[in-house]
Design a protein around this nucleic acid. Structure first.
Lengths: 340, 340
DNA sequence: GACTGGCACTCGTTACAGTCGAGTGCCAGG
DNA sequence: CCTGGCACTCGACTGTAACGAGTGCCAGTC
């Protein structure tokens, strides 16, 4: 059961070599490339133990060893330390993110940056609406029975929605409605709005009541419950690096999963704090992603997360480097949004 | 030079069989599957001519024939007629598009629908801002020196942008600014705004001048010149159908091109009218897409296009079916937006 | 003159046998 | 407990042969 230090060193070496070369690594090349201080025969014995414990496996007899998901897990947890970013990377991050003009811009730049630095698929969630508060609500009349509701959140997000009124509402009433919703809701967190919206209906004057009722329904439905979360994606072309060896031959399931916003949100959007999470292969709950690993983290000012971001790649990935990059980018983005 | 009717029929049969089976088609199987009324030897002679003229080619000696890009072109132009949609497809389109609550929703549903029906990659451009007109402009104070500018277009598009003011502006002035820009710009087409914005600066009162100047810069920059166009994408997983035979082995260039909004816009966003365009393989100006075909069209109320949409797939695609679907979807979307 | 049947030929695909070598497991000895 | 040595395994690669789909061409027929 107990793995002594040398066995751990062997595992580390296997992971590093395999990540670098993409080929099963044998005992001989191991001792050549790493100063393990023992012979290949000894390493072979260690490997046998590691295999027995499920950390590595042989693709076929008489081939080298490849780390299992479990092996990567051990590697990430105990055998690696986060690589410091190179100055070049730091510079790249700064250069990439300055000059962003609005939230969309920030998110798009971030996701591209992340894809580029990690050379993998990057996913960035827009700042969660549930964790934002209302900065302003605007009602724009489209016709006498239609309003465009626009909500601006303090994170810079802007959401719109068409409201079909039950009966024509004169312009003056629209002004009243606008004033009322703003008075009541501005400054409150979206997650806290439901009771406020309720109160809004009850307190409004009789002639505004019907309009306010539909308005509140829309507010609740769209802004609080429904697909209020959004994500941006970049770097899908990186999936094709490493031939078809990664992802056991077919990109299909991966591409499918990436297109399902719901799935992606579940993957990176569940963060509460800005800690980093690494999901390796099988650990992934989403079947389509069983052949992939995901490194994700929350970003936001301080330790509370406004949203999540991360990258997805083959289980055979450079975890220390990827983790470092993901964290660094998240930190920069958090700062950037805090200035807002 | 002249291809008689039978040779054309042979070409048509080759295209149809190849699209269906994905395998080079030989003279024998051709006469079996189609009632050409002649023997395989005759067909062989015809094929030799077709090959000489560049409409088909042999992957290698002693293999069947495969259409060339030129062959597909001839097929599309002269040998096929647009397939009428099946009732099921019609129903699918209607079912999919009713219940869309806002523009984002319409666009997303459309792109998914298109991907699903054609089983290919779908691209939908948001209604072009340049061809929209301003419905409302909103200025939301973030701080005394920062405004959030929100523009709502008649197509339902909402664009926002942060404005850094040169000096603090009191709330009353913001109200004035808001009134001024709305008075001047509402109802005008975005492409016509530059002179109006100019006039706006010149006509505004002295104390509003500095703020109005930056505001106008932002208006022009963001809303008129810059990345004002957006697109949505779906169905990338469909690229993996048909193994790696399509796209000559690598999805990489395709995925790369799909991620470049600029490239995609060039591809489907240049439409002026609602005519359908088919680009086959080589005809494509974008190198990365030389192995693919694109069927695109404009959509909009009437014959003027608000934006473009289309699908991208292997040159070996069901052109008649795809063209029919793309057109039908575009028409429905056009109608949907017209109701708006 | 156009079409057809027949036939020789091409060449990719598949199957099979044989070799090579990286890598292993095990064991006896230090 | 480590090491050198050795027999063994098995995938990767190579060469050869048989197969067959498909072609091009030609002489014969309507």
């Amino acid at each position: 059961m107990g793995l002594d230090d040398r066995k751990l060193a062997v595992l580390r070496a296997i992971v590093e070599d395999y990540v670098a070369t993409q080929e099963p690594v044998g005992s001989k090349s191991l001792v050549e490339r790493h100063q393990l201080g023992v012979s290949s025969a000894t390493v072979r014995n260690d490997m046998a133990v590691l295999e027995e414990e499920g950390y590595i496996r042989q693709p076929h007899t008489s081939a080298g060893r490849v780390p299992t998901d479990r092996g990567y897990r051990l590697f990430v947890d105990r055998l690696s330390r986060v690589k410091p970013l190179s100055p070049a990377e730091r510079r790249a991050i700064e250069r990439f993110l300055v000059g962003a003009v609005d939230l969309d811009d920030v998110v798009h730049r971030t996701v591209r940056l992340l894809a580029q630095l990690t050379r993998q698929v990057a996913v960035v969630q827009y700042p969660s609406l549930a964790r934002s508060s209302v900065r302003h609500l605007e009602l724009v009349p489209i016709s006498t029975t239609r309003l465009m509701l626009v909500m601006i959140a303090d994170t810079g997000r802007v959401e719109q929605r068409l409201v079909e009124l039950p009966a024509p509402v004169p312009a003056a009433d629209v002004t009243d409605l606008r004033r009322l919703v703003n008075e009541k809701l501005v400054g409150s967190r979206l997650s806290e709005t439901p009771p406020l919206v309720q109160a809004l209906v009850e307190e409004s004057a009789a002639h505004l009541r019907p309009a306010m009722t539909t308005l509140s329904t829309v507010l609740l439905e769209t802004l609080v419950e429904r697909h209020e979360e959004r994500i941006a994606l970049a770097g899908t072309a990186n999936l094709t690096r490493g031939g078809l060896l990664d992802f056991q031959g077919s990109l299909r399931p991966i591409l499918e999963a990436l297109e399902e916003e719901v799935v992606m949100l579940k993957l990176i959007g569940e963060v509460e704090s800005t800690t980093t999470r690494v999901l390796i292969g099988d650990e992934n709950e989403i079947d389509n992603l069983r052949a992939a690993s995901v490194v994700s983290t929350g970003y936001g000012p301080g330790a509370t997360a406004l949203g999540g971001l991360g990258v997805l790649g083959p289980t055979r990935m450079d975890y220390p480097g990827t983790i470092a990059t993901v964290r660094a980018v998240a930190r920069y983005v958090g700062e950037l949004l805090a200035q807002n």
